[in-house]
Simulated assay, not measured.
Amino acid sequence: MPSYLILSLIIGEFFVFVIEMIAFPILVKEHGKSRSLVYAFIANFVSLIAGGYIISVLPV
């Protein structure tokens, strides 16, 4: 069961990656597009790692 949860997390994060890589540079006007892309990528990558760790440690 946990392997299916991690698989669904990875698939869900992929779609979040794509959507945020498109929307974030368009919606955020404070910084350049490249900085917004890097920020979105790092935030989503950390979310993927943290979510995978939490799923593997906590009883689900």
Rank of each mutant, 00 (worst) to 15 (best):
12 G>C: 10
48 L>H: 01
42 I>N: 01
43 A>W: 01
17 F>L: 08
24 F>R: 06
51 G>I: 05
6 I>N: 08
51 G>A: 01
16 V>D: 10
51 G>K: 02
49 I>E: 00
32 G>P: 08
5 L>W: 10
3 S>D: 13
12 G>F: 14
28 V>Y: 14
21 M>K: 14
20 E>R: 08
36 S>W: 13
34 S>M: 11
57 V>G: 00
25 P>R: 10
12 G>N: 08
58 L>F: 10
17 F>H: 03
21 M>A: 14
29 K>G: 01
45 F>E: 11
38 V>L: 14
38 V>W: 05
2 P>N: 10
25 P>G: 12
6 I>F: 14
2 P>H: 08
28 V>K: 15
12 G>Q: 06
60 V>F: 11
41 F>C: 07
29 K>H: 07
1 M>G: 13
1 M>E: 13
40 A>S: 15
9 L>R: 00
43 A>K: 04
14 F>A: 04
15 F>E: 04
48 L>V: 04
24 F>Q: 11
19 I>E: 04
41 F>I: 07
34 S>V: 08
15 F>L: 14
32 G>W: 03
52 G>H: 02
44 N>Q: 06
12 G>P: 07
26 I>A: 06
20 E>V: 09
31 H>A: 14
23 A>P: 07
10 I>V: 08
14 F>I: 07
31 H>S: 13
17 F>A: 04
6 I>K: 13
4 Y>H: 10
33 K>F: 11
44 N>P: 00
59 P>R: 06
27 L>A: 12
51 G>H: 03
10 I>R: 03
53 Y>M: 12
19 I>H: 03
1 M>P: 13
56 S>L: 12
13 E>I: 11
51 G>T: 04
8 S>P: 01
2 P>F: 05
33 K>Y: 04
4 Y>K: 11
17 F>M: 07
50 A>E: 00
39 Y>R: 09
36 S>I: 05
22 I>E: 11
52 G>Q: 02
42 I>A: 06
1 M>H: 15
57 V>K: 12
22 I>T: 06
36 S>Q: 06
53 Y>F: 13
21 M>Y: 15
14 F>D: 05
23 A>K: 15
1 M>T: 11
40 A>Q: 05
53 Y>V: 10
22 I>N: 05
49 I>D: 01
37 L>D: 06
26 I>C: 01
54 I>Y: 11
22 I>C: 10
58 L>N: 05
54 I>V: 11
18 V>I: 12
19 I>Q: 02
46 V>G: 02
53 Y>T: 08
46 V>C: 11
7 L>Y: 15
57 V>E: 03
47 S>L: 12
29 K>Q: 06
25 P>E: 08
55 I>V: 13
8 S>L: 15
5 L>I: 13
14 F>W: 09
52 G>R: 01
40 A>N: 03
50 A>V: 12
31 H>I: 08
58 L>W: 08
43 A>H: 03
20 E>Q: 10
